[in-house]
Amino acid sequence: MKRKILEAVNFIVKNNLVKGTWGNVSLKYGELIYITPSGVPYNVLKEEDVSVVKIDGTHVSGLKPSSELPTHLEIYNSREDVNAIVHTHPVFSTTVSLITSYIPPLVEDAVMILGPKINVAEYALPGTNKLAQNVVRALGNNHAVILKNHGLITVGSDLNEALTASLVCEKTAEIFLYALNIGNFNVINDKDASILRNKYLNSYRQIRKDVR
């Protein structure tokens, strides 16, 4: 689990989803949460540094957990299907958070993987229970939520799904900003968006897992 955390942070750095020590990644395994520690540069992070906490937040081992632990715990406690969380600060998703309350259903892959509409959670100070509550409310049953004036959180049944969701959301945010700049644009209607989402959850997603 700790090795997977290291692989994930290397991934988000390589794909320009974070800068410096910002962002965090966690994995749930049984009643334990493995999460990146607070303030440690990713290029020097070691397996033994990864923080391990119980689902109630009790620290078990490793360094002090990320300050965003309350949000991770709130998501895990509200979504039984989630076993991985990725929190990043990508440019386009964060820009979207400044100008709107959601990204409408624009492109098929985003609708399928992320949800029909990508909501922007109301602002609250980082690391607070209020932020955690806002995030869970805006996330709903989706796999991505944008944090106002802050960044992006994606979730998945595993790290691969959560990381893929991060890339897809950032691409979708970029498309959305281009579309806003151009002017009028088309959206996928609610009926078709629901069909696409259900196809991913009940068909494509299962196939993807079977061929891992």
Rank of each mutant, 00 (worst) to 15 (best):
L45G: 07
P37C: 03
L27F: 08
G39H: 08
N24D: 03
A138P: 13
I182N: 05
V82Q: 14
P126G: 03
A193V: 06
E108G: 00
E68R: 00
L69T: 07
N198C: 02
V211S: 08
L6W: 08
K2L: 01
Y29D: 14
N189M: 06
E170W: 06
L159E: 12
I207Q: 04
V25Q: 01
N181T: 10
G156Q: 12
Q133L: 10
H150I: 03
N141V: 04
G151C: 13
Q206M: 11
G30T: 05
K4F: 03
V52G: 00
E170A: 03
Y204I: 11
R79V: 02
V86S: 06
A84M: 08
K191A: 13
T164S: 09
V145R: 13
N134A: 07
G115R: 05
K191V: 14
I113N: 13
P70Y: 02
D109R: 01
P37Y: 04
E80T: 11
S97M: 02
T36Q: 02
N142T: 11
L106T: 04
S66D: 03
P37M: 04
S51M: 00
L17R: 11
Y123Q: 10
T128W: 02
L98N: 07
N134V: 09
I35L: 01
P116F: 11
K148Q: 15
T154D: 08
I188L: 10
A179L: 15
V91C: 09
M1P: 07
K209G: 00
V44P: 09
G30W: 03
R137N: 14
P126D: 05
V107K: 09
G23L: 06
P105R: 13
A144C: 14
D49I: 05
L106R: 03
A124Q: 05
I85Q: 09
V86P: 09
E174G: 12
R208V: 02
S26T: 08
Y76R: 10
K64T: 05
F185H: 07
K148D: 05
N198P: 04
A121L: 10
K209F: 04
L201V: 04
N202G: 11
P90K: 09
N119R: 15
L152H: 06
D192R: 07
K14A: 15
L131R: 09
K4Q: 15
L106V: 04
K2V: 00
P41I: 09
L163I: 12
H87V: 03
S26N: 04
E174I: 00
N186W: 09
N83R: 12
K209D: 08
P65M: 00
S67R: 12
L163K: 12
L180M: 15
I195F: 08
I85R: 07
T154F: 05
T164D: 02
A8M: 14
H89C: 08
L6Q: 10
T164A: 02
L163Y: 11
T21D: 12
N141I: 05
L73S: 06
N149I: 00
E170V: 00
N83Y: 10
N142Q: 14
N141M: 13
L180V: 10
L180K: 15
N184W: 09
L45K: 07
N186A: 14
F185M: 02
P116Q: 14
P90A: 13
G39I: 10
V53T: 07
N198W: 03
T172H: 08
V9A: 11
E108C: 06
S51T: 00
S157P: 05
A121T: 11
Y34H: 06
H87L: 01
V136K: 14
V50E: 00
N198R: 14
E80A: 13
Y200I: 04
N134D: 12
V120R: 10
S101T: 15
